[in-house]
Write a protein that binds this DNA or RNA. Sequence first.
DNA 1: GATGAATGAGAATTCATTCAT
DNA 2: TATGAATGAATTCTCATTCAT
Lengths: 204, 204, 204, 204
Amino acid sequence: MTERRGKQQRGIATQTALIEASARVFARMEYDTAKLKDISEEAGISLGSLYFHFGNKDDIASAVLDEQQTRMKTVLSAVAEAPHEHALAQLLSLIDEMAALIARDAMVQAGIRLLNSLPDELQARGYGDYVSWQEITQEIIVAGIADGSVTSPRPAEELAEILNEVFVGAQVMSGMRDAWASLPDRITRVRPLLLELFAPTGTR
Amino acid sequence: MTERRGKQQRGIATQTALIEASARVFARMEYDTAKLKDISEEAGISLGSLYFHFGNKDDIASAVLDEQQTRMKTVLSAVAEAPHEHALAQLLSLIDEMAALIARDAMVQAGIRLLNSLPDELQARGYGDYVSWQEITQEIIVAGIADGSVTSPRPAEELAEILNEVFVGAQVMSGMRDAWASLPDRITRVRPLLLELFAPTGTR
Amino acid sequence: MTERRGKQQRGIATQTALIEASARVFARMEYDTAKLKDISEEAGISLGSLYFHFGNKDDIASAVLDEQQTRMKTVLSAVAEAPHEHALAQLLSLIDEMAALIARDAMVQAGIRLLNSLPDELQARGYGDYVSWQEITQEIIVAGIADGSVTSPRPAEELAEILNEVFVGAQVMSGMRDAWASLPDRITRVRPLLLELFAPTGTR
Amino acid sequence: MTERRGKQQRGIATQTALIEASARVFARMEYDTAKLKDISEEAGISLGSLYFHFGNKDDIASAVLDEQQTRMKTVLSAVAEAPHEHALAQLLSLIDEMAALIARDAMVQAGIRLLNSLPDELQARGYGDYVSWQEITQEIIVAGIADGSVTSPRPAEELAEILNEVFVGAQVMSGMRDAWASLPDRITRVRPLLLELFAPTGTR
DNA sequence: GATGAATGAGAATTCATTCAT
DNA sequence: TATGAATGAATTCTCATTCAT
C-alpha cells in the first residue's frame, strides 16, 4: 500500500515536471516548432515516460492549457473576492494581477503562445479562444456601468473588446521583447488610456 | 532579345505566383506548420520548380518578407508625400492606411504572422523585428512635438511604443478573429484613445 | 542495472551492425554512390533507426573511419611490441600485417575507399589524409638508419614517400581487381624492390 | 551553306568547351559527386545545351574517356616511333612521357579519376580498366626480354603488373597531394627501383 | 512507471532529364 | 543550336509515436 502510494507520488511528480518543462518550452516557441524531444530533455525525463503520462503531443498542450486556466482562475477568484471601491477599480486590479501572473508564470506564458499556434483539433477542444476572458471582463464592465464607475457611452462589449486589444498588444510586445518581463510596466503605462476608455474626461 | 525576355518573363511569372501563394499560405499558418507542398499546390506549380526558383524554405519566407516590406514602404511613402495639416494627422493617416493595407493584402498578413514564427536563422537576417516600424512612427511623433500637434508630456519613444502596442493588439485580435478584415474598424474604434494618448485632454 | 545494461547492449549491437554494414557498402562504392538505404538494408535495420544512432551520412562515414583507425592502430601496436632484429625487419613486418588487415577487413577497405571520395566537411575533420601513416613509417625508417638496417642515402622522408606510393599502388590495383584479396601477394612480390629501396645493393 | 557550316562550327566549339569543362570537373571529383550543373557552369554553357550535345551524364563521361584515350594514344605513338637504344629505354621513356601528359592534361586526369568512380553501365562499355595499358607495357617488356635489355627472371606479365602498381601509386599520391603536378618528379624518383625491377643488379 | 531503442509516415532537398521557346 | 524553366523520382533527414525490457 505504501509502496503503491510511493509509486503514485513518483508518477505525479514526473507528470508535474513534464508539464512544467512543456510550459517552459511552449513559452519559448510555437506548437509545431516545439519538439517532444525538446520537452523531454528540458524535463530530464525520457520520451517513453512522456508517452506513458500523456497520450500524444496534443494532450500535453491540453494539459498545459488546463493548468494555465487553473492559474488564471485562481487570480481571477482572488481579485473577485478582494474588496474594491467599485467595479472599475476591480477591473484595473484584475488587469494588474493578470499582468503580474503572466510576467512570472511560464505556464501562463505557454498558454498565451499556444493560443496562436494550435492545430485545428485543439482549437476545436475549446481552447484557442480569448472569448472566456473577454466575457469575464465584460461582466465586470457591466457592473461598472451599473455602479457608475464606468461612464463611457460605448457598449460594454465594445469596451471589453478594446481593453482586450490593448492588453493583448502589451502581451505580444513584451513577449517578443523580453519574455513578458516588461508586461506589468507596460500595463501601468497604458493605465491613463484605459481610464480614458472607461471614463472619458467629458463624462466623469 | 524578345526570346530572352519571353523566358525571363515566364520565370518571373512563376516566381511571383509562388511568392503570392506562399503569402496566402503563411497568412493562414505558422512557418513550421506550412509545408512546401501546401505552397506548391496553392500555386499550382511543382515542388521541383519551387526549388528551382528558391533554394529552400527560408528563402521563400525571406522573399515574402521582402515583398511585405516593399509594400509597406510604398504605403509609407504615399502617406509621407501626401499633404497633412500637421504631423499628428499624418501619423493617424499612416495608421489608417497601414490598417487598410494589412486588411487587404495577404503578403503583408503573411509577413505579420511570419514575424512570430520565424526560425532563428531568419531572425538573424534582420527580419523579425518591429524596430524599423517603431522608428518611423517615432520620427513622426517627434515632428508632431515640434509642430505642436503632439502635446503629451511623455517622451516620443514611449509614445511610439504605446502606439505600437495598441496597433499590434488590434492586428492580433483581427488576425485571429477574421483574417484581419476587421482591422480598419478596430483602428477607427481606438482613435479616441490614440488622440488622448498624443494630445491628452488637459494639454490641448 | 542489468536492465540498463541490456538496453545499452541492444543499442550498441545495432550501432555495431550499422557500422559494419556501412563498411561493407563503402568498401564497394564511393561515398556519394552509397545510399543510406543501401546501408540500412545491408544491416537489416530501418532507416529511422540509422538516424537514431547517427545524425547524418557524414557521421556514419566518420564512425567507419574512426573504427578503421582503431583497427589499424591495433595492428600497428602489435607490430611495435613484437621483437624484431632491426627496424627494417619491423617495417617490412608492418607492411605485411597491414596488407593482411586490409585484405581481410571490410572496415579498413571502406576507410581506404572513403579517403578518395570524402566530402569537404569530412576532409576537414582530419580524415582524408595519409599523413599519419606516412609519419609512422618515417619514424621506423629513421630508426632503421640509426641501427644500420637502412643504408639508402635518400632522406627518410623520401623513403617513406616512395614506400607509400608502392603500397598505395598495390592497394589500388588489388582493390580494383579483386576486392583487395591479392594485396598480400602483391606486397610479397614487391619486397625485393623495397629491399633495394631501403638497402641498395651497392650499400649493403 | 556557309551558314550551316558556321552553325556546325559553333556547335563543335560548344561541344569541345563542354568536354573540356567536364574534364576539369571530373578531374576534381568523383563521377557521382560531379553534378551536371557544375559542368555547365564550369563551361559557361547552359544545361539545356549540354543535353543537346550529349544524351546524358554517362555520355559525357564517355566522351571524356574517349578523348583521354586519344591523347594517351598520341603519346604512345610518338614514343613508339621515336628511336630508342633498346626496349627498356623505350619503356622508361613511355612512362616519363605519360607522367608528363597526366601532369599537364586535365582530360587525362579526369579519365584517371573516372576509372575509379564509374557506374556499372560505363564499366561495361569497356572503360574502367587498366588492362589495355598493361598490355602495351607488357609487349614492350617482352621486346626488352628479347633484346636483352630486360634481364629480370620474372615473367613479363608480372613485371608489367608491378610496373603498373608503382605507376598507379605515384599517380594516386600526386593526384591527392597536388593535382598530379608532382607526378613527373615522383616517377623520376622511383626510376632506380624500376631499373632494379627490370634489370636486377645481379643479372645485368 | 521508466527507459532507450525502433519505426514509418512524412517533409525538405537534390538533380538528372525533359520541355517550350 | 541554345536557353531558362519545369518536373518527378529519388534521397536525405525529421519526428511523433510505439515497442521491448
